[in-house]
Design a protein around this nucleic acid. Sequence first.
DNA 1: TTTGGCACTTGTCAATAAAAAGTGCTAAAA
DNA 2: TTTTAGCACTTTTTATTGACAAGTGCCAAA
Lengths: 329, 329
Amino acid sequence: MLTERQNRILKLIVEKYIKDPIPVGSKVISKELNCSSATVRNDMGELENQGLLEKTHTSSGRVPSEAGYRYYVDNLMELKEMNAEDMLKLQIVFKNQQLAISDVITKSLQVISDMTNYTTVVLGSTSHENLLKQIEVVPIDEESIIAIIVTDKGHVEHKSIHLEQVSMEDVKKTVGLINNLISGTPIDEVSRKLEFEIKPIIGNYVKQHEQLYNAFYHVFSDFTNHEVNIMGRTKMLEQPEFSSNIDKVKTVFNKLESPDLLQDIIEDDDKNIKIYIGNENNIDSDVTVIQTKYKKDGEEGTIAIIGPKRMEYDRVVGMLEYIKENIER
Amino acid sequence: MLTERQNRILKLIVEKYIKDPIPVGSKVISKELNCSSATVRNDMGELENQGLLEKTHTSSGRVPSEAGYRYYVDNLMELKEMNAEDMLKLQIVFKNQQLAISDVITKSLQVISDMTNYTTVVLGSTSHENLLKQIEVVPIDEESIIAIIVTDKGHVEHKSIHLEQVSMEDVKKTVGLINNLISGTPIDEVSRKLEFEIKPIIGNYVKQHEQLYNAFYHVFSDFTNHEVNIMGRTKMLEQPEFSSNIDKVKTVFNKLESPDLLQDIIEDDDKNIKIYIGNENNIDSDVTVIQTKYKKDGEEGTIAIIGPKRMEYDRVVGMLEYIKENIER
DNA sequence: TTTGGCACTTGTCAATAAAAAGTGCTAAAA
DNA sequence: TTTTAGCACTTTTTATTGACAAGTGCCAAA
């Protein structure tokens, strides 16, 4: 259990360090509290014993540890109103009636990325949550068509298909069949249903049914599992602790580029705003992920902000709350 | 005019420097030529006078200047066969019959990016080259529909539209009208045609025509001008001259992130492989862009490889030739 | 025209020293 | 019992020095 003064010292150190990433000494802190640097030093020693602070070397100032950030976020952080400037920039996006929800979300997270210099991510719903709404085909030339899949959540994906000696009529027949028989099925189960419900039927009266079946099978099995949108991919370079350590930057960039990983990583059913500091997330032990789920009409997904552990927690949480509120009404 | 030996020296220096970015001294060169280092030094001095070589400081070895690279590319470079390993990896992509052309291109450039550690870009055709093929609408719920635009080149784009109190019937009518009257029009002229050919008609017998017209107007005017695909966005970090200079990296990253700029930059009607070294391109004076146009059936576009000026010119040109050849037949 | 040789420049590396920042601990003060 | 002043000690940062390596330019001889 920490004393009142220790709490105040920890809070000051975390906030100072977030503003400027240099270890914080006892002197600066003592000026803000009404006590001497020696007193502060004693408390800092105790905070270090508790694992909330760290030293970079024997005689350096203190830096928050991972547990320190966690304690700060859980107990010390005060949420403040979003500042007027931030709010204004976001409102421009929200006021735009033309935009569909998903565009509003993407655009506003783009704005946040620019304002904060953190990387932002928007994750659509997963393919097992999306139901097949409709499939459309558009012929391009004699040998190729484009198949367009639309899900009930409004997710659209398309794929060009190369077919030899298949009549457009047969294609239309097959598509009609799919739309009639298996629309409403979760996307990731469609492939299986194709095999058991469509293949046997078209086998009888569609020429080249093998080729056609294969084509559609691939269309669905290649369906992107998650629609993922990353904004400000390279913002990490703006963070001093990263720009001085290129290897860290590379690690994080690689995580972001590999879409599979990203999907596994940010998955959480909680509707509140969640904060994963360092090892608490699966991206990298040097970053913090702040994320939340949104749900609006049918559409749902996750938005996340990725920054250094030394993130402006209060500001980001404020923004996420604001965005979420605006989305959901 | 350069002497034969000067040509050989310049070639050696460029190639050595490309392999390993440290200034090249007269001694190493003299070992490969049958002459003394003093002779080489004289020639190097002359090459520097001609602006083809540079020194990093008074007593350093030489480094190719921009003009030096240009001279190398124009006069000295020998194209060699692609090495077997590179070729094998690319063939795996080309052999895959399932893939549509555009996917083959994207995938193969992904492979090239991984093999070379350069950033690669695939640019689809511009919107004035794409003709409207067909527009489809899929209703999602009472108040929103998804509009899907397909062009003759097989480019697909979709947009969710929010409509209030518009009947699906009216939507279908309007879409039918568009498909009948203005399919075949270049995408960037559709908006105008909508105004003069569709608006007057639906004005008469479609309720809420204003809203509907606006919605479709935006669908087309927001149509992405260029489909752009970037692979290996962060590969620049693997290049020693960049990873030691973060500001350069940031500049290049920013250029890559801004899609508008990218479009202006890589625009060229020449069908050959073109090389833009340093200031010759508009991305950054520290990079080289090697690019070419491809054309296959209806589809056409540009592929580009972006790397440091110290790029492996011969290897990259070889790869591009190989890819182009494979695409076009 | 080429080459050996040498003076000269610059960058790199290691060692040293001094200064700055900050700590921990002790003993005195509150 | 808590707080504080003071001081010894540690580590980092910065600058200085000197030695060495790499490389050049130029001159005079081959």
